[in-house]
Each structure stands twice: as C-alpha cells, then as structure tokens.
Design a protein around this nucleic acid. Structure first.
Lengths: 198, 198
DNA sequence: TCAAAAGTTGAACCATTGTTCAAATTATGA
DNA sequence: TCATAATTTGAACAATGGTTCAACTTTTGA
C-alpha cells in the first residue's frame, strides 16, 4: 500500500485505535474501574506503550471525549444544513448521533465522567457539550415556535432525548438483535413524535 | 422520642443512611472511583465503621441496587393496579419511577454497574431488572394492541424510556431549576406521547 | 547496508485502595 | 450504678493502580 500517511496522521490513527479500546473499557467498567493494564490487554499491547501516545490516563479520557464531542458537533452543523423544518432536522440529528456513538465510537464519552478530567480539558469539553445541547434546544424551540411541536421546556426535552440516546451505549451490543440503523430510525421517530402536537 | 424501633430496624435505618451517601458517591464518581474513605467522609463517620454494616464494598453496592430495584418493582405493581388504559398506567409508572430516583434515592443503581457485583447478587438484581423491564414492555405492547399506541418494538421503546428516565440522575440537582415533580410530569407526558398514534 | 529514529516492552516504584482489628467509646437494661 | 453488649475509631496491612524507564525491536531513509 502506498504510504499516504505522514508521521503525524499515523500516530493519530494509532491514537484512534487506542481510543476504541479505551472507550469500550470506560463504558464497561467506568473510568476508575478500567485499568491501564485492562485497556492495554484489549488492544494487545504492553501497558507502558499507552504512555507513548498519551501523557496519562486523564489525557486518554480527554481525547475520547473531545473526539466524541467533535464528531457530534460536526453532525449538529450538518443537521442544521439539511433541508426541511425543525422536525426533519431534529430527526436527522438524533439518527446521526446514534449512528455515531453506536457505529464509529463505542460510546466514547457516553458516560461523560467529566469529574475525572483536568480543569483545562474539562472546561473545553463542557463548553463543547453546552454548544451541542444548545443546538438541540434551539431546534426544539424553533419547532415549538413554528407550532410543529407542542409547547414544552426545550431544556427538559433536550435532556430527555440525550438520556435516551446516550443510554444506548449501555445496552447496545454489535451482536445483539438490533442493528444500529434500526435503533437510529426507531429512536429518532419516537423521540421526535413525542414533541409533535397531538 | 419513644423507642419504636427495635435493633433490627435501627440498623436498617443506618444502612439506609449509608446508602444515601454511597449512592451519591457512586453516581458522581462511579463505583470504582468512589473510595470507602470518600463515602465515609460524606457521612461523617470513620471508614472502618462502614464494615460494621456491610461486609465489603460489593455488598454496599448490592444493597443500593436491590433497594432501588425493590422500590421500582413496587411502583410497577402499583401502576398495573391504577385505573385506566395502558397509556395512563405507563404514564403513572414513568412519573413514579422519576419521583423515586430523584426524591428518595439519589440515583441509586442509575448507573447499574452490575459488573462490580458478585455472581449471586448480580443474578438477583438482573432478574429484578428484567422483571421491571418486562412490565414496561407489556404496558407498551398492550397499548399497541389496543391501538392506543402506534406500532413499534416494545423492547426498543422500553429501552428509550429507561435511558431518558435513568439519565436524569446524571444531571438533576436538588438546587437546580427543575423540581422533581416538574421533571416527572414533563418526562411522562413526553415519553408517552411519543408512543401515541399521530 | 546500516546508523539513527521511532516504537514497544515489562519489571519496578510508590501512592492509594479496600479491608482488618484491637482498643476506645457509647448505649442498654437490670 | 455498673457490667455487658453494641457501636465507633483510626492506624496498619496487603493488594492493586497509575506511572516510569532503561533496554530492546522495528522502521526509516540515505
């Protein structure tokens, strides 16, 4: 294979591979419960090697969460550009969010154990999370104003949606009965229909 | 005060007090992240004293989860006795569930970190959780059959509801802008409306 | 082909964790 | 009031955790 990746992006690829194992471990055992040795074993590498790619465990967690937030914010931006009213856009965002955390990242940042982050990354990640939630709330509020949705508190509705969506990381299994696409579609339908006027 | 409590129920009261502190710690830091010293400090007692009431940390976690599951199953039984169709019953159960984990228990077992349980308690708690989920699914399926709800997979719908409901433990704060009753009512309305035919 | 750089290893270190226990304190009841 | 039981304490112990690092292997590029 031709070498298309320079040094920088090769280490980034490795960091993403580590992310996958680490995020799985964090999801299964929690941040503190997942040991560096466990993470290394999942990836079939030596524990010490993790420290070649990440300064320490906090840094590894921060990378997981920033990667997840970054992708979700990209999906949020795309959703706002999709044609249609707030209902269609919200539906698209929920489905994209689900595909993202089920398919690409193994629930990275689903737990969002921000308490374990250092002050600086925590501020960054909380800011990203706030931006994402604001997009959600704005879509909902817009739907309420356009009378597509019934009156409600957009903040509470957004929290309900995020709970249902992020909760999937806890029970979803790739070899389970529900493929990610199916979950994405059914959840998006259900969670948007609850907002509609009845 | 008159001594109405015999020895047994007095130690049970203390165990419940410990539960409150422990469940808060588990919710904030995760099972592994919450140290026995932290839990003791929250309760203003010595670390060693916890071992007078619980065999070890696993036992403390098991008590939290069994207490939570027990109360939720009691609410499930009551919901099935409330008058009205599946929609009303489901709405009542969701609201009761929320009041339970927001008001009474500080999100005990919200995480449901079953991996940290010993085999025997884990079997018990998983069985209780399954029973609870089955009640939920049955209510949903009944609503679908009676054409009160739109066709859907009751299993997926139940998981969506549980995600939204249990997720509240992560962001709810007693001194926040939303009182538990408000959250219970809005969530119950929203989550049931999503099932209705539109 | 080979020297330098990049990447990998696992044993060792030290702080922290769950846990124990003998001693101290408080509650009980006759 | 006092002896007994119940409860609480905190120092100490063994195990586990994150982390370091010198040595080793692989990759790179000329």
């Amino acid at each position: 294979m031709v070498q298309l990746l320079n040094g920088r992006s090769k280490t980034r690829a490795k960091r993403l591979a580590i992310l996958r194992g680490a995020a799985e471990a964090f999801r299964d055992r929690g941040y503190a419960g997942a040991g560096m040795r466990d993470i290394a074993r999942r990836l079939e590498m030596a524990p010490g090697n993790l420290y070649y790619y990440f300064r320490d465990k906090h840094d590894l967690l921060a990378f997981c969460q920033e990667e997840a937030c970054g992708r979700l914010l990209a999906e949020a931006a795309r959703a706002r550009r999709t044609p249609g009213g707030p209902a269609r856009q919200l539906r698209a965002l929920i489905a994209a969010h689900l595909r993202c955390i089920l398919d690409e990242l193994p629930g990275a940042g689903a737990h969002l154990e921000v308490h374990a982050l250092r002050p600086a990354p925590r501020r960054r990640i909380l800011a990203q999370r706030d931006r994402y939630e604001r997009v959600l709330r704005t879509l909902i509020a817009r739907g309420v104003r356009s009378r597509a949705f019934a009156p409600c508190d957009p903040k509470l509705a957004a929290l309900a949606i995020l709970g249902a969506v992020n909760g999937t990381a806890q029970w979803y299994r790739p070899d389970g009965p529900f493929p990610p696409g199916r979950i994405a579609e059914e959840f998006a339908d259900y969670l948007v229909r609850g907002l509609r006027r009845s």
